[in-house]
Write a protein that binds this DNA or RNA. Structure first.
Lengths: 211, 211
DNA sequence: TTGCTTATTGGTCGCACACTCAATAGCATC
DNA sequence: GATGCTATTGAGTGTGCGACCAATAAGCAA
């Protein structure tokens, strides 16, 4: 009758427990925001006591940074798989740009806004954000370089192209938390337009029917 | 000798006091962030008791929204004065774009990131952000329209141009809280490039020597 | 000067947070 | 089955927050 007063302790391997904590924190960060990554919240998620989270992360700031890093890495791998995938660079880029539009991407946009703002007050997170920015840029740059090597893209500065595309995506993503008024088609197409222009592609090349 | 134990009450006109509170809150929001706009912090700023702030703003969320609105309006008026100023639209645009680069603009970028993130949790602020976005867009659109009327710019969709410029500025501004690696020149010039391209201006037209 | 309105104070309450640490109990090892 | 290591708990500390409200005094009007 009484609610589980006596909690059964489950003793786990430290490495596994730590991974479990980070995974839970990443999920909370993605769904509810980095400020919801608190000792109590994550402990509740895993049905353990807050003190245990403190045991693995003496400073909660480290956990927050870890949560962001884990979530961002996961999303990057989903959007731009690292290993040279089967499709051509053009197809990969089209797929990436298709995925970075629409509501499905809002959660990731929210996470980035969240992290970039919180970086103002949390040095550890700030470093992690810089690390992830580099990772995203490098991944996209690599794709551009692959396309150039394959003769599909034309540019003499893959880094500049990658950064320009990311700047446009960031600019469009900042509204993820606010009701955005209907935007002109030219604005919605900015990522595609930018990529096609900077890579010497015929307009429309990057549109794709299949998600 | 004893620290001012007995505080002299200064009774002010409600409208004036309210304005004073909003001004202090806007200053704190700009300098330290919207989460530092607390009853205690603003009260300390004005050398009054927290209860007084509550008296004027029964819900602190309203004060936060007001602080953002006040700060954002102030910055907009500084960057893009409303009344048709003396200089030509081209000069005004060049001046605006010059001011929206460099560290001087970082504080404003920080404020926008802050507000957009906090909007996730604060409905009142969210509405205020939408309002300010519209104000900035309209102000820039008006400038574009003036340029078209004056025969300096060429476009058939001033709104789309204005939004595209703002998207690029937002995209560049998101790094205001993080140490940004040196960016390629092409990236730094994105606002200028975008404006010149969309307005049918010769490349370089919007560069300006004088700040 | 007296009185009145109300701006302002001072104190309190409850909540959520991070962090600390001695006590406890799971579980592998012997 | 007994033992020892340590993962895990439970309880407590201190801070800062928004919100609430009765008491007070500033300054205007009579």
């Amino acid at each position: 009758m009484s609610s589980s007063v006596q909690r059964k302790r489950i003793r786990k391997d430290p490495a596994a427990r730590r991974a479990e904590i980070v995974a839970a924190a990443a999920a909370v960060a993605l769904a509810e925001g980095l400020e919801c990554v608190t000792l109590r919240r994550i402990a509740e998620e895993l049905a353990v006591r807050p003190g245990l989270i403190s045991h693995y992360f003496p400073s909660v700031e480290d956990l927050v940074a870890e949560a962001f890093g884990s979530a961002a890495t996961g999303e990057l791998d989903r959007l731009l798989p690292a290993g040279r995938a089967t499709p051509t660079p053009t197809e990969q880029l089209a797929r990436f740009l298709a995925h970075t539009s629409g509501q499905a991407y809002d959660a990731i946009s929210r996470l980035w806004i969240n992290a970039r703002h919180l970086s103002r007050y949390r040095p550890v997170l700030r470093d992690r954000v810089a690390e992830q920015e580099a990772a995203w840029r490098d991944r996209l740059e690599r794709l551009v370089q692959d396309g150039v090597d394959a003769g599909e893209f034309v540019t003499d500065d893959p880094v500049a192209v990658a950064v320009q595309i990311l700047v446009v995506l960031d600019g469009l993503g900042v509204h993820a938390n606010t009701a955005t008024p209907r935007r002109p088609a030219a604005v919605l197409r900015m990522p595609l337009t930018t990529a096609e222009r900077e890579l010497g592609l015929r307009p429309g090349t990057l549109d794709q029917a299949t998600g």
